[in-house]
Amino acid sequence: MADLAPTTTLSRTTGSSIDRARLDRIVLRSSPDVQGTMMDGETVLLDLSTGRYYTLNRLGSVIWEHCTGQSTIADIHAAICDRFEVVSSRALDDLIDLANELIREGLLQQERR
């Protein structure tokens, strides 16, 4: 069993690297060096390039499952609103915040299509 240093819940920033004007044109894809597995509704991500690992809670895992390079951010947002009891604007803010964090950590890539 590996000894682990304290964990870090990644901070949210107000700056956005995702262009909100193009949510229907941006698709999200996991980075090639990242492997994920789901356990008990949560997802563990291992970044082979850095040796770091991350955990996603339930909704984070749902979002991650959509990051296959097929769904646009607008598609993912619609799927969340369809499945969860949430105000649309909050779901979008949370989705973009999470995506930006994952992009900043090198776990996700965004592509225009």
């Binding site: 955990t55 909704l59 969860f84 964090e101």
Partner: peptide
């Protein structure tokens, strides 16, 4: 029939630092 939706909780990612 209205579909019952799941309870929402903010998506969170936690980074773990290995020694």
């Amino acid at each position: 029939m209205e579909q019952k939706k799941e309870q929402y909780a903010q998506p969170v990612v936690v980074k773990h630092e290995l020694l």
